[in-house]
């Protein structure tokens, strides 16, 4: 399953350049990195969202592989239908190729409105991979909060006001929810290391049965970051342990990345405009302390699930 960079460097991505996503957007990077190690023919199923809208502006399509979008909340069911058709036609001898199915949904289409459809598809055991490109909010409709939006983030339906400091709730832990379906492969990663993304998605796709990969990706407009800092901010998400990198293989939790040093979460928050209010005013210290405490608690949970300890260098 290993990927050699020299083998993939000249390969065409299933998605072309020239789409209309913003410069610096993490979603197309997740597609390119995720799919670069795949040799099988692919069919892509896409939920409504920035990736879908910006890659298929009629009469153009950025997709070199068969691609289908029906609606927002149903990429899981959409993948199930294509996969069911494939199994049926293969059984009848009408198709002989080994085709793989990958669904892409944003966090809105996955954590929120599409959770039921995803859960159903995972439970039924369809042979497909669901990739959540998670920019932590509804970007296509203008940076509203989703249940993936972090506590304290300034989103357009949870704005940082003079009384309420952005979103009040912690995001749900969707990766654990996916793992609770006891499917063969679940992973969580970000664009901190392209080989990590590529190898996790490759494992997901090549594992028979359902797989789920949650990839944290920046939205330059919502996160309000310099588009050049895409990789950098993702690295900070991993290094501050804001976004733990791990996989769950047949129920076994495995931590993929242990930062060497304890890096305060502020380093991830500070470069992002969506958190700027956390660094101002008299509540700043308390809010940042709370953010750090949340990171520690979630990290403990992951360490525990993975049966790991962590001793950072001082």
């Amino acid at each position: 399953m290993s990927i050699k960079i020299k083998d993939v460097i000249h390969k065409e991505s299933p998605m072309t350049q020239g789409h209309r996503m913003c410069p610096g957007c993490g979603a197309p990077t997740a597609v390119h990195q995720g799919l670069m190690g795949i040799d099988h023919p692919l069919v892509v199923i896409n939920a409504t969202g920035c990736l879908e809208v910006s890659t298929t502006v009629y009469p153009f399509s950025a997709w070199r592989v068969p691609w289908i979008h029906t609606a927002f909340e149903n990429a899981g069911a959409g993948a199930a239908g294509v996969e069911a058709a494939y199994q049926a036609l293969k059984k009848k001898g009408k198709i002989d190729k080994e085709i793989k199915f990958v669904a892409f949904g944003g966090d809105g289409g996955t954590y929120d409105i599409g959770l039921q459809s995803l859960s159903g598809a995972l439970e039924r055991g369809h042979d497909f991979t669901y990739i959540c490109y998670n920019n932590q909010g509804y970007m296509n409709t203008g940076a509203q909060r989703s249940s993936a939006t972090p506590k304290g983030a300034n989103a357009t339906t949870s704005p940082a006001g003079s009384v309420i400091p952005g979103k009040l709730q912690k995001p749900k832990d969707l990766t654990s929810i996916a793992a609770a379906h006891h499917i063969p492969y679940v992973a969580q990663t970000t664009l901190h290391n392209y080989m990590d993304v590529a190898s996790k998605v490759k494992k997901a796709i090549e594992t028979p049965g359902p797989a789920f990969v949650n990839i944290l990706v920046p939205c330059v407009l919502f996160w309000r970051i310099d588009p050049a800092l895409q990789g950098d901010i993702c690295k900070k998400a991993a290094d501050t342990r804001f976004w733990p990198i791990y996989e769950v293989i047949d129920g076994e939790w495995k931590l993929s990345y242990k930062p060497k040093k304890r890096v305060p979460v502020e380093e991830f928050l500070k470069p992002q405009g969506r958190y700027s209010h956390l660094f101002k005013g008299e509540r700043s210290k308390a809010l940042l302390e709370q953010a750090q405490a949340d990171v520690e608690k979630d990290w403990e949970y992951i360490l525990d699930r993975c049966g790991e300890t962590w001793e950072p260098a001082e």
Binding site: S61, W63, T70
Partner: peptide, 12 residues
Amino acid sequence: LDVDNPVSYGSF
């Protein structure tokens, strides 16, 4: 499923 002749369904 005709992967040799890819089509896009559901464009914007």
